[in-house]
Amino acid sequence: MATGEGTVRLRPPRNAPARRAVGWWRVRCLLLTAAPVAVLGVLGALITPARPWLLVPAAVLAAVGLSVTALLPLWWFRTHRWEVTDEAVYVRTGVFLREWRIAPMSRIQTVDTVRGPLEQLFGLATVTVTTASAKGAVKIEGLGHETAADLAERLTRITQDTPGDAT
């Protein structure tokens, strides 16, 4: 990217996800890898004539999956950022396809906090902020339980104080 005079960039949002999120992302990657590898492996063990055709892809998948598990979550941890000001929610995600999402407080309709079973294990939560647009939801992943609760409470308070029908 050109970095001459007069260029304008988006600055990164101020807050990082919880460090524990790396572990959660790793387990998720691992599970995603394990499912197809296990299926291929079991089939390979049972069907003798096709064994090489099943076990070789399983090995390749496992290798790719393990390297992704090792590297990608660290990378995500470095790029995922979030910030809530009095005017807007601002989130940055993505490694190869970077995405910045901004939702103004006055347009927020709902604030959801979700803790999946895996997230529970790591003491994490995901806060999703939706606006009236079908394509405008902003998701903040990998927050600690307390941070998420505080954030949801704060967002709900601010949006209640902001008038307007949000469309």
Binding site: F96, E99, W100, R107, T131, S133, G136, A166, T167
Partner: peptide, 23 residues
């Protein structure tokens, strides 16, 4: 009622960005 900005690795190198207004 919001903005989504997207930039792939290739777009970043070429100095391009996709600017999406949500409504």
């Amino acid at each position: 009622i919001g903005w989504t900005l997207r930039q792939s690795w290739f777009q970043r190198r070429a100095g391009l960005i996709a600017v999406t207004a949500t409504t």
